[in-house]
Simulated scan of single mutants.
Amino acid sequence: MSVRLKLTLSYAGFLMLAGALLLAAVWVFLLRYVPEVIDTIGGIRTLKADLVRAFAPAAAAVLAFLLVFGLLGGWILAGSMLAPLARITHATRLAANGSLSHRIQLEGGKDEFRELADAFDTMLARLEAHVAEQRRFAANASHELRTPLAITQTLLDVARNDLNRDTGELVDRLHFVNTRAIELTEALLLLSRADQRSFTREHVDLSLIAEEATETLLPLAEKRGLTIETSGDITPTIGSYALLLQMATNLMHNAIVHNLAEQGTVWVTTSLHPKTVVLTVENTGEKLSPLLVSTLTEPFQRGTQRIRGDHSGVGLGLAIVKSIAQAHDGILTLIPRPAGGLCVTVQLPVAPDQEQDR
């Protein structure tokens, strides 16, 4: 049976039960206060027998009316109550068929159906945004992967058609292009791993991770004439040491590569708060608009005048940082510096034992 039919039978059965109890109460009242016999001019008359003959048909008619009224009213009432559920079901079927732009937008007060519809609309909005993001990512990834493959194919065609060409230069260019393709593939795999949260969590100190990332990239900073200033507190958190190290390394690499040509500075700070630990990487550089900064965490977005070089990366640095932060229940914030450059802040939950100590 459908839910509407079940509700209809429930309403009708409850109405019949209430009517039967009411008639039973009336019958008991009459039996208690009406005498069994009465003297009349013609003799003795049995009142209770007359009462039964008069009451029984009327009671049966009332119960029959209540049954019909309960079934009809219950059917209408159940249909009215389940109408929002029908709209939710229709939206679910549309979503199952691939239409994610449809919204229920249920009117009325804040009842259970309204809350369910609003939650479903929110889920559809997030799902639509996620699907759109995945489509853009797939298109961008395909384009980025196609580029080194196309260059490799061109170089091989040149080598095949010109056998007298110097192979040393060709091998060097092929090696460079192949290295870029490998870096891109590894970045895509790392991004997928962070999105799936398929890693083991352990106690780590974010300040030590930032220190290791700084030491690793210090030669690159010195080569570019940059100064790195570090400071901060012990910042215990829970997560993957390898992923968090990759996150800090990406932030440091981004701050070094996209800096001033001369006399630039990178500031690395860690701080401990009651509920969170914070890693801040700030760098000098060109002035960036808030609109441009809001797109930098999207895959393959490099910003204005961010031209590829030997250390420019594959355009997934901040996208990987965002995914790793979200996988650790953290928050990534990017703010353009008024004097130029970028200030990136990552907030992660503090380790539970440290939170209790504080």
Rank of each mutant, 00 (worst) to 15 (best):
L127K: 08
G340E: 12
Q153E: 08
T89S: 10
I331A: 11
A117V: 00
H273T: 01
H273A: 15
E222G: 11
T214P: 00
T89F: 06
T200R: 12
V268F: 01
A210L: 07
E286S: 07
L218K: 09
K275N: 11
K275D: 12
N140H: 12
F14C: 11
L100V: 08
Q347N: 14
E133T: 12
L51E: 02
L7Q: 10
D357I: 08
T154Y: 08
R201K: 08
Q105C: 00
V204N: 02
P219C: 06
A83G: 11
H102E: 14
L184M: 07
R193C: 08
H273G: 12
D50T: 07
R87A: 00
T265F: 03
G225K: 07
A12I: 07
T235F: 08
C343G: 04
H130E: 12
D205M: 05
V158A: 08
E215D: 10
E298N: 11
L348C: 05
A83R: 15
M247H: 13
V293L: 10
L174S: 07
L21Y: 07
F199E: 07
R224H: 05
Y33C: 02
V293F: 05
A18I: 02
E107S: 13
Q354V: 12
V278R: 06
T147A: 10
V177I: 07
G225V: 05
M252G: 03
Q246W: 08
E133P: 02
W267P: 01
Q326S: 10
D50G: 03
L127E: 03
A139M: 08
S323D: 09
Q305W: 04
T284H: 01
I228V: 14
V278C: 10
H258G: 05
S312R: 04
G341D: 00
V52D: 13
A25H: 11
A117C: 06
S198C: 02
Q305S: 10
T216G: 04
N140E: 15
D118I: 00
